[in-house]
């Protein structure tokens, strides 16, 4: 074991009697090790993505299709015209495609965990969270692709965001942060469910209410009162509002803060739950 150990002073260690004599080994991975292990596993996830490009269908064709479909179907009814609907719709589609992309995170994790390689991950002296964080980091590529294509589709259809380049970049970044954060809900589902199909089924039931019971596609004030209450509580609504403000006026409103807070909360709760169920399942 000449390789794994980088002892930090003050870290708790335990003496093991190896053939080379007694050696002090750390009792848990350091933060630095955890980061580098997560990045190594992100590299693995990216290699997988490159080998199976069909995995990217949900972040390429779907945003293009949905943007066009929703704009032409609902545009006239909700905003009077397609061009008036786009400023409302594009941030909504951004949130929706990010959520759909998150869903795949959970399903793929479940499929992965059933394979032998996860046994090896468990037997290695690596942070328990690394096999969960690694794929999540790699999935930023997916959220980025989805967000970029949605914005491009909007621009092609005549959307002219008043927030300018800076506003668009900020909205794009917030979409990525939101996608990465909300993915922990699906990662947790991936660790608790028994099969990839089960994850898919449950994820649908989580994803649809989160997307449609928000202000993503319609103004919330058209909804009945009880529904408005849920919509206001839904973190997706805050993300959508914040992205709308950034894209359409370049304004960093309070909703950006609420969106980030909601995301942080989701990560804290579901990240903890995920690691706990994952470690227990070994």
């Amino acid at each position: 074991m000449t390789t794994t150990t980088t002892l930090t002073p003050g870290e708790p260690t335990v003496t093991a009697r190896t053939l080379a004599g007694a050696r002090d080994l750390p009792t848990r991975p350091s933060v630095r090790e955890t980061v580098s292990q997560s990045l190594a596993l992100a590299w693995r996830a990216l290699l997988k993505m490159r080998r199976n490009p069909e995995q990217l269908v949900d972040v390429t064709f779907q945003p293009l299709l949905f943007t066009a479909m929703f704009a032409y179907i609902f545009g006239g009814a909700i905003s009077g015209s397609v061009s008036d609907y786009l400023p409302l719709l594009i941030p909504g589609i951004l949130a929706q495609t990010a959520l759909t992309a998150c869903m795949a995170t959970g399903i793929q994790l479940r499929e992965d965990m059933d394979k032998g390689v996860f046994d090896r991950f468990k037997s290695l002296p690596i942070a328990r969270i690394a096999p969960l964080v690694g794929p999540a980091v790699a999935d930023l590529v997916r959220y980025g692709t989805a967000a970029t294509l949605t914005i491009l589709a909007g621009l092609a259809m005549g959307y002219r965001p008043a927030g300018g380049l800076l506003g668009v970049v900020a909205g794009w970044l917030l979409t990525l942060v939101a996608g990465w954060s909300l993915a922990w809900i699906f990662t947790w589902l991936g660790t608790v469910a028994r099969s990839a199909q089960a994850v898919q089924g449950i994820s649908m039931m989580v994803m649809f209410p989160l997307t449609f019971l928000s202000n993503a596609f319609v103004p919330a004030d058209t909804l009945p009162g009880w529904l408005q209450a849920f919509v206001r509580f839904n973190p997706v609504s805050h993300v959508v509002t914040a992205v709308r403000d950034l894209l359409n006026s370049g304004a960093v409103t309070g909703d950006v803060g609420w969106a980030l807070l909601g995301c942080a909360l989701v990560v804290a709760v579901f990240g903890t739950l995920s690691v706990r169920t994952y470690s227990r399942k070994m």
């Binding site: 009792t27 991975p29 032998g116 390689v117 090896r120 037997s123 002296p125």
Partner: peptide
């Protein structure tokens, strides 16, 4: 975590 640093484990089904 210490035990994992001391072990090499090769499973019944190739875990690669």
């Amino acid at each position: 975590h210490v035990v994992r640093q001391l072990l090499g484990v090769t499973g019944q089904y190739a875990s690669v």
